[in-house]
Computed example of a mutant assay.
Amino acid sequence: MSRISARGFAVASATAVTTVGAVVGVAQGGAAQPGNDAEATASDSTLLADLPVGQQAEVQTASLTQQADVQAIAADTTAKKSAEEAARKQAAKDAVAKQKAAKAAAQAAEEQAKAAKEAKERAETKAATARDSNRGDVGSFPQQSSYSVAEVQAIARQIVPSGQFQCFSNIVNHESTWNYQAVNPSSGAYGLVQALPAGKMASAGADWRTNPATQIKWGLNYMNERYGSPCDAWGYWQANGNY
């Protein structure tokens, strides 16, 4: 190769390097630096003109190939960053979707548990109502010719709700000492709860004179309707000495 050819290729190499540097600078977001590089490029371009046409084409082809390589690298880097950003955004969307799904599942489970609890409470209330209804069924107690105090109390325990029995018992104990045939000689009050007038107990059954179950049913209804419960009636009795 001649001196001119060697010098031309050297100049071409310098030109290519300068051009590549400029392209890389742009790909990396930096501005190309004017000044010495531009002057060198202009000078090298002048020297390039000294080369034969065929060699000039070779040098220019090499320079363009290097530029294309740099541009391809820059494009690949940009594409990679775009793909990473898209993946990050998709991951964030997926996380939000999973969080919403988990929240919805938890809410559904809570609603199901609440519905199950309410259904259980309704069933228990229904069963308690049925028990209370059976408690008040006087016909479920076979009538006897006479009853002991223990027998009368046993009947009362089956009719009066367990949480109210002690209050009911306190009143009956003070009014009649559990004697279902007790009579107040001055007022005419009669029976376990000393109904006055005594005939009011007929609303619970025609056998009110001889059946303690009928008297207990009437007394329980009276306390519930007038005071709210046997315990409320007992509270009134304690404050006033009567009910």
Rank of each mutant, 00 (worst) to 15 (best):
Q112A: 15
G139I: 06
R122Q: 14
Q143Y: 08
K126S: 13
K126P: 04
A123T: 11
A119L: 08
D132I: 10
Q158F: 02
Q144I: 07
E124F: 03
A156D: 00
R131T: 15
I155F: 01
A130V: 12
G136S: 09
A156G: 02
R122D: 14
V152C: 03
A128Y: 06
A130T: 12
S133F: 12
A123K: 11
V149Q: 09
V149Y: 00
I159G: 01
S148M: 01
A150R: 04
Q144P: 06
E121R: 13
Q143G: 08
D137T: 01
Y147E: 00
V149M: 09
S145F: 03
K120R: 14
A130H: 03
E110Y: 05
A119C: 09
S148A: 01
V138E: 00
A150D: 08
T129R: 15
K120D: 14
K126E: 14
V149F: 01
A116Y: 04
D137C: 00
G136V: 13
V149A: 05
S140L: 07
I155G: 02
A150Y: 00
R135C: 01
E124H: 01
E111T: 14
R157P: 06
A119I: 04
P142M: 08
A130D: 08
D132Y: 05
A154K: 11
A128M: 10
T129G: 15
G136A: 11
E121P: 07
Q144N: 06
V149H: 04
V149C: 03
E118L: 13
P142Q: 02
A119D: 07
A130C: 03
A154E: 13
Q143D: 04
K126H: 07
V149K: 13
R131V: 15
V138T: 07
S146P: 06
A115L: 10
S146C: 04
P142T: 05
V152A: 05
E124T: 08
F141L: 08
E118V: 15
T129Q: 12
